[in-house]
Every structure is written in C-alpha cells, then in structure tokens.
Nucleic acid binder design. Sequence first.
DNA 1: GTGCGGATGAACT
DNA 2: GTTCATCCGCACT
Length: 188
Amino acid sequence: MKLPISFYRQENVLKLGKDLLGKFLFTKIDNKISAGMIIETESYGGIKDKACHAYNNLYTERTKVMYERGGVAYIYLCYGMHHLFNIVVNKKNIPEAILIRALKPFIGTDVMKERNPSKNFLNGPGSLCKSLQITKKLNGENLLGSKIWIEDRGVKIKDKNILKLKRIGIDYAKEDALLPWRFKIKKI
DNA sequence: GTGCGGATGAACT
DNA sequence: GTTCATCCGCACT
C-alpha cells in the first residue's frame, strides 16, 4: 500500500531516513511502471544543516519546494547533468528532505536497463533517476499521485542491520559533513 | 549579464 | 584511490 500522507509529515528527518529503507519507490512514466526497494538514503536537516540547500533559510526558485508540506518530490539537476530525487518531509516551511541514493531492482528491470544501460543502473542518486526516468518535470509532484509514489510492502529492516555513515560529496559543509546521516541496509 | 562551484558517474589505476 | 565531462543555479554587478 502507498505510504499515507501522515508518514511524510513526521517531524524527525533522521527517523524517516531510516524508515524509508525497505520501502519501494515506484514511477509510472509513459505508461511504464518501474520500481525498486530503497536501500540507501541521506537526510538533509533544514536551515541549520550546512549541507542542505535550504541552509540559513535560503529560499530560491530551486529550494522553494522543500518548504512545502511533507509528501512531495524535490528534484534538481546536479553537476549540470544528473537529476537527484529527494522526498520532502515535515511541516510547511520546515525545509527538510531525504535523498534516495540507491535501490534494489523490483519491477520493470528491463525498462530501467533500457533507459540506463550502465551496470550500476540503480546504484547512485543520479543513476536511479535515469533508470526510473525521474526528471525535473516531477519536481513538486505529490508522492501519493499516479506518476511517482512509495509503497510499504511489509519489509522490515532491523536497526542492527542499518549502517550509519557520513554523507557523500558535501565536504564544503565543514563539520556537518561528518554527521552520520546516511543510512544503508547492511549486506546480509 | 557574468563568474564560479557543485547532494555525480564512469572509466580508469 | 584518481580524473574529468559538463551546465544549471546562486550570488553578485
């Protein structure tokens, strides 16, 4: 079943980063469904997090989506070539989001490989967006809609099987770059 | 209008 | 571990 809106409105972005592990991200683009299980996330903690685009309450055309109520998609272009998909959480005007970094194939593997022939087609935030055809067109899209959504299929990840690691590619955030806000399912 | 740096990926060693 | 392709968005003038 689709995650209810109340899930996204919770106020603990770190708990949500962990809770999203084992959930399933779906897209339906051009009438083709593809999906994967979320196995790695990173939490971005609002105006006090130097790694967050909304640090210091920065409000621009790009970041405004993060100020929406939880339950919408924040998608932007990085390095001029990669789309990155984030889940906006918490209340309106609290700009917190969770970046999806990796998925495990579930549905529509052939379609995904066709869109992204690379070996790591769901490993890495830019790669998985290419495979699921997530583009800026979906920026601000409601995650309970019919184009992009997240389902709970009863998979439970125990806390002892979750690795807590520092986030990647944000060295400019100085001390915040060391925060263990990346969550990953331990390989069994 | 202009300058500059980035929440990356792929292909290397 | 390294390099580099490649261009949007932010902050300024």
